[in-house]
Simulated assay, not measured.
Amino acid sequence: MSEQILGMIGLYGGAAFGILGWWFGRRMAKKQRGLDELHDHIWQKARSISWYFTLGSTYVLFSLILFGIEIKAGMLLGIIMLVHMASWGIIGVILSINMNMTEPLKPSRVKFGISIVAVSLIIFAILSITTGNWWFLIASIPPSTLGLISALTPDKSVTD
């Protein structure tokens, strides 16, 4: 019973904080005249690219089911939603940073960093699902952080 209450708090509390964050961010961007065509283009492109990650995660999860790993529907939908929202946010941040820098990020470094994040999340998610111990997902935080740093750090060898 307490798990259900905590689940409800997490589900609706997360949605409430997400909506508040979205509203507050748009309000601040509007004050700084940041809601323009470039902003719309960046976030539409990020949403479009995030669907590829969602499709990939769906195939991975279906493959796990085919290999005999039982996953509940709520967990499947939660993972797919997390992959979609996280990839949308991360790609949107990367595109925003890249569009507003004087020297754009190298695509190879961005792809490498995103690959590190994706591979670590997939490996630790599979470990978590197969063992039933969700604490393995915490182990994916350090490699994911390194991947994000690698993707978002401009190349320092560029000469002016």
Rank of each mutant, 00 (worst) to 15 (best):
M1H: 14
E3T: 09
E3F: 12
I5D: 12
G10H: 01
G10D: 00
G10E: 09
G10W: 07
L11K: 11
L11W: 06
L11A: 14
L11V: 04
G13K: 07
G13L: 08
G18E: 10
L20F: 15
L20Q: 11
L20E: 10
L20C: 12
L20S: 13
W22H: 06
W22C: 09
W23H: 13
F24Y: 03
R27T: 08
R27N: 07
A29N: 06
K30M: 05
Q32R: 12
Q32A: 09
G34F: 02
L35M: 13
L35I: 15
L38K: 10
H39G: 02
D40M: 06
D40N: 05
D40H: 05
H41G: 03
H41Y: 08
I42R: 01
W43Y: 13
Q44T: 14
K45F: 07
A46M: 07
A46H: 01
A46Q: 04
R47S: 12
T54V: 07
T54I: 02
L55C: 04
G56P: 02
S57R: 00
S57I: 05
T58W: 02
T58M: 15
Y59K: 06
Y59N: 06
L61T: 14
F62I: 14
L64W: 01
F67V: 01
F67K: 11
G68D: 04
I69R: 10
I69A: 06
A73T: 13
A73K: 04
M75T: 14
L76Y: 04
L82W: 07
V83H: 03
H84T: 05
M85G: 05
A86N: 03
W88Q: 03
I90P: 00
I90D: 00
I90K: 00
V93Y: 08
I94Y: 02
L95I: 03
L95G: 00
I97G: 04
M99G: 14
N100A: 12
N100Q: 15
T102K: 14
P104V: 02
K106M: 15
K106F: 07
P107G: 10
P107F: 00
S108V: 12
S108I: 11
S108R: 11
K111P: 01
K111H: 09
K111Q: 09
G113D: 09
S115L: 12
S115D: 06
S115C: 15
S115V: 08
S115P: 01
I116L: 15
A118K: 04
I122P: 03
I122M: 13
I122D: 06
I123E: 10
A125F: 07
A125Q: 11
A125N: 13
I129K: 00
T130A: 08
T130R: 11
T131S: 15
G132N: 03
G132M: 07
G132I: 08
W135G: 15
W135Y: 11
L137T: 09
I138R: 02
S140D: 10
I141T: 09
S144D: 00
S144H: 02
L148P: 01
I149H: 01
I149E: 10
A151Q: 04
L152A: 13
T153Y: 09
T153I: 06
S157H: 13
S157M: 11
T159C: 06
D160A: 11
